[in-house]
């Protein structure tokens, strides 16, 4: 059971969180090419080691940025997206 620190609620068990994908995966506009749209839709960094991801804390429904290591599972930072906390 990993503990993730929600920027709003503090450390909570992993079962309360939902994985939202790579942090830098910006959504292209409606006129995007097939290639850039499918890049966004399907292709991932899938990094082994340090990763930057978007997560949502299902209890408070706030999305946030999490920096963690996908091998050691060390969480190095969690940051609110809107700067509220």
């Amino acid at each position: 059971m990993q503990l993730f620190t929600c920027p709003f609620c503090g450390p909570r068990p992993e079962t309360e969180f939902h994985f939202g994908g790579d942090a830098d995966n910006d959504r292209p506009g409606a006129e995007a090419s097939d290639a850039s749209w499918t890049d966004y839709l399907f292709f991932r960094h899938n990094r082994k080691g340090p990763a930057r991801e978007i997560w949502m804390h299902l209890s408070c429904r706030e999305a946030f940025l999490m920096e963690r290591d996908t091998v050691t599972h060390t969480v190095t930072a969690t940051l609110a997206l809107g700067g509220e906390a």
Binding site: R27, M56, R61, E62, A63, L81, G82
Partner: peptide, 20 residues
């Protein structure tokens, strides 16, 4: 749907101008 609405609200919209 609740999750979907919340994700898009926070991702693409001004969260002070729409709430779920």
């Amino acid at each position: 749907m609740g999750l979907l609405l919340e994700e898009w609200r926070q991702d693409k919209f001004d969260r002070s101008r729409v709430v779920i």
